[in-house]
């Protein structure tokens, strides 16, 4: 039994909206094992990004705690690496300068990081674009660059918020397969937000379903299927039905 890397214990959060208090998260409990791929799926606006913002320390929860490797890190920054919904590459930095931003911030030697990063440009399908500016890249390439930046932050867990949401179906398929490669290669734990049931099942060891706001964990589903998964196989379809039922 692999040890839990992250534990989310009883996280609740309400926002003050124009029409009074807006309860958003209610008593969320999750645990993510080391090296596993866990997805969060839920209706739009239920509070998925809010949960991520809490985990990465941007906002503090009303109650509950985030525990990573046994340490309480609630509200602490610089503990996880985070890839937001938008790629947020800095337009004024070349791709290579963008992807090493993590080591720049932490004061690690940047030249060394760049050397390491250069070797990875092939893996991320960005060969030859080291010195290009983000605006000259296609959507898929920008997402891969953003993911590379996230990987190079060298944190034990990566939070990916709807990373493929803006991509067309074809590119998305490729990116999913390729993300699994990256995940296996770098041995990081991944917490992945998506709207797409099939995507969640194709990628994850475990799927959490959140309910409408105020969000609670509606279902915790361990996906026990060998990879690479075939989305048309009867077992896969069986899992899909379970998720659909939970989202009703």
């Amino acid at each position: 039994m692999p040890e839990p890397l992250i534990e989310i214990n009883g996280i609740s959060k309400s926002f003050k909206g124009p029409e009074g208090i807006l309860p958003t998260l209610r008593e969320i409990n999750m645990s993510i094992e080391k090296g596993s791929f866990v997805s969060i799926i839920g209706p739009s606006g239920c509070g998925k990004s809010t949960l991520f913002n809490i985990i990465c320390g941007l906002i503090t929860p009303d109650t509950g705690s985030v525990v990573i490797e046994g340490k309480n890190v609630t509200g602490q920054r610089g503990v996880v690496s985070y890839m937001p919904q938008k790629d947020l590459l800095f337009p004024w930095r070349t791709i290579i300068d963008n992807v090493v931003i993590g080591s720049l911030i932490e004061g690690r030697p940047v030249e060394e990081s760049k050397k390491r990063a250069r070797e990875l440009f092939g893996v991320f399908g960005l060969e030859g674009f080291e010195n290009s500016y983000p605006a000259t890249l296609s959507g898929g390439m920008r997402q891969r660059a953003a993911l590379m930046r996230t990987v190079l932050c060298e944190k034990p867990i990566m939070l990916l918020d709807e990373s493929f949401g803006g991509l067309d179906a074809m590119t998305r398929r490729n990116m999913q397969a390729w993300l699994l490669n990256i995940w296996e290669r770098f041995q990081r734990s991944v917490l992945f937000i998506t709207h797409d049931i099939e995507e969640a099942l194709y990628l994850s060891d475990k799927v959490y379903v959140l309910t409408e706001r105020p969000a609670e964990v509606g279902l915790e589903l361990v996906v026990d299927l060998p990879r690479p998964r075939v989305v048309t196989s009867p077992e896969f379809v069986e899992y899909k039905k379970k998720l659909l039922a939970a989202l009703e």
């Binding site: 990465c56 941007l58 920054r77 937001p84 947020l88 800095f90 931003i101 911030i105 932490e106 932050c153």
Partner: peptide, 13 residues
């Protein structure tokens, strides 16, 4: 862009 600023905040910049 506030989100870019937040991205760096997450890295504890």
């Amino acid at each position: 862009d506030k989100d870019m600023v937040d991205l760096l905040r997450v890295m504890d910049a």
